[in-house]
Amino acid sequence: MNGPNLSVEIAGVTLDNPIVAASGTFGFGIEYSDYVDLNKVGAISVKGLTLEPRKGNPPSRIVETPSGILNSVGLQNPGIDHFINHDLPMLKQYRTKVIANINGKTIHEYCQMALKLQNTEVDFIELNISCPNVSQGGVSFGTDPDMVYRVTKAVKCCCQQPLIVKLTPNVRDIKEVAHAAEEAGADAISLINTLVGMAIDINTRKPVLANVTGGLSGPAIKPVALYMVWQVAQTVNIPIIGMGGIMTGEDAVEFILAGATAVAVGTANLVSPTAMLDVLEELIKYMENHDIDDIHQLIGGLVL
């Protein structure tokens, strides 16, 4: 085998390559198997899970905005038990690492889910304290550093797998929040979740989304995401999964140079089912063109 080394390690777990599916943009992976060899994806963060099955918000749940999309799904999912019994076994037939993205209304609920995931084949738990589209829990846990510390600490005490904490950009100082998560024992940090936004239909004078507001993602938020990843990389010593508008291999390189160990592809999955494989191929091409034989030569390689 030649070609550059792409494998990265996050909290003792090795990913074949640094490309991760962002939660909520790639279902449970299996939906895409007609188009994508799931063995070739570094890791898949599955659709956000809750303790009980959840209906989600009424439609419309999506609207296109300039170079972005706003969504307000509201965590529709079949519940964590269904995931463990039905979706996880199917996904574990592939080499890709599985990240269970969990969402609670209370700290207790987050802990209950972490307990349910003990002794399962899940490789990582991702603590989603950054969903902007639910009325209870979600982003309300992620905006206050003290709260971030409390929920991270509580889940860390009862989870078996490495814990990734997913941060929201809708905060005054992302460094404070990242620091709180690291202090509480987070094994890795993923960022950014979506930025809160809205769109109005000027003919009906109504919001386009039934939930009124939604989370903005896509190339429109990439510069913001990149800046936040760079800030956090200077603050914490744990690995970072960077995301926010990554559409190409070049975008991925930017996040890695800013300090991300792995990168998640989200909105691009809605544009093209093969987006992650395309990003991976372009990343390899970049490395070959620049005589880089190991991805670690790029991580945090920003020159100031």
């Binding site: 279902g27 439609p59 999506i62 999309i69 969504n71 529709q76 999955n269």
Partner: peptide, 12 residues
């Protein structure tokens, strides 16, 4: 609609 694959849960 979003992805068209059943992956993004938006076209409910």
């Amino acid at each position: 609609m979003g992805c068209g694959m059943g992956g993004c849960f938006v076209c409910s």
